[in-house]
Write a protein that binds this DNA or RNA. Structure first.
Lengths: 221, 221
DNA sequence: GGTAGTTTACTTACTAGTAGGTTAATATCA
DNA sequence: TGATATTAACCTACTAGTAAGTAAACTACC
């Protein structure tokens, strides 16, 4: 059995993830995204890493704790990616495009969004994982709502319901498109659907729709 | 242990489902829709029905066979429901509303669409179940495409991409909305999202939109 | 700087419980 | 009597999780 981590002395004020813990999370994440939380075991991870199950229990006492960590890390990384998008561009249209790109890169690795996957297994998950899941969706909804409101203000987007409702439609549509496309092993299928979902927001495509004051003005020019 | 079936002699040219088989499928279906295929066991079904696991194996030799039957029956029942919609109304708008109603009634029973659920577990499913799944989605897509084309012809609907593409967007959006809404235990959430997805198709909301594939392609780039 | 104590990162060997599945005997009924 | 349906009793493989031990590395102190 090889050693996962030969840990160099990090100061580590909080619980800094060790190299071993990271390696375990990496494998567990991929398995969870492809097979679901109920579709993999400690034995699967241990075999892949060439360590014992007991070693995994040293780092993550229970599978529930591993699952909780999985969501937490995923949420954190996703948040970082959203921040990066915000820094890269100010265009709401471009932001959404890059948001879709996040999903697309996951699917192109033959994976499903971790939280979309876990949402299916929701009823079987330990409470901390359930709470982590809805926090993740809430954060997505929050970010999308801001982008949509921005696009509405600037006349780029057009939709009649509240931005929060539109954000929910968007989130669900992307998760669902991903879910179905993966059954066909066809990332193109997702890309096409996602493009149409985004183009539904275009103010230019339906100029007489309400709640776009700027769009109405632009039309006259 | 009680008896599941006191079978009255059905002529049964094909394999007519016995009362016992039906009872087993009913329980298995509910478990699959709430917990997923990997989230229930023969022991769960047996306990609920008050029979032994061996008895279940008599009716469904393997879990794979049970799963396959589950999809087949679900697909058949869904097809019947779609036929019923076609008989009840000719209005494409009303048809879609009733189609959404089908999903809604599933979710209101705290269930997820069986095939949406299984789509998440796709990678872990036996091949016959995988094939059954895509057949189900194909059938949905086919029915939706016909309704959308009809609505487009009659001027009720407006969308720029091919009806088949729109059908895929619709299917994914509904499955995804359902998936997320269930994590919040909130059927309203689904209803609201579904209503907006349908209203996106309304020709009245964006009268100048055109079905120009060239425009759609340009927007994608 | 050497050594005692402590911590980290594992190991082997095990538990109790559950998974899907089998077999042979038996009950039920037409 | 023969087919249908069901049971008890089992099997093997695997599940998450635990107990006890160990080698190496780090820390404290004289």
């Amino acid at each position: 059995m090889k050693t996962l981590s030969r840990q160099q002395a990090l100061p580590s004020r909080t619980a800094a993830p060790t190299a071993a813990a990271t390696a375990i999370l990496d494998v567990a994440e991929r398995l969870a995204q492809t097979r679901g939380y109920n579709g993999f075991s400690y034995a699967d991870i241990a075999a892949e890493l060439g360590v014992t199950k007991a070693s995994l229990h040293y780092h993550f006492p229970s599978k529930a704790e591993l699952g909780r960590s999985l969501i937490e890390r995923y949420h954190g990384l996703f948040g970082t990616a959203l921040d990066a998008i915000d820094r890269r561009t100010n265009s709401p249209q471009e932001k959404l495009k890059q948001y879709v790109g996040l999903y697309d890169s996951v699917l192109s690795n033959e994976r499903m969004c971790l939280c979309g996957m876990l949402a299916a297994e929701y009823a079987t998950l330990p409470a901390p994982m359930q709470a982590g899941l809805t926090r993740f969706f809430d954060a997505n909804e929050h970010w999308l709502t801001a982008v949509l409101e921005d696009g509405l203000r600037s006349g780029t987007f057009s939709f009649k319901e509240a931005a929060k409702e539109r954000a929910r439609v968007l989130l669900g549509a992307l998760e669902g498109a991903m879910l179905v496309a993966r059954s066909y092993g066809n990332a193109r299928r997702f890309q096409t659907a996602a493009a149409f979902v985004l183009s539904d927001l275009d103010a230019a495509a339906h100029p007489r729709r309400r709640r776009t004051p700027a769009a109405a003005a632009a039309r006259r020019t």
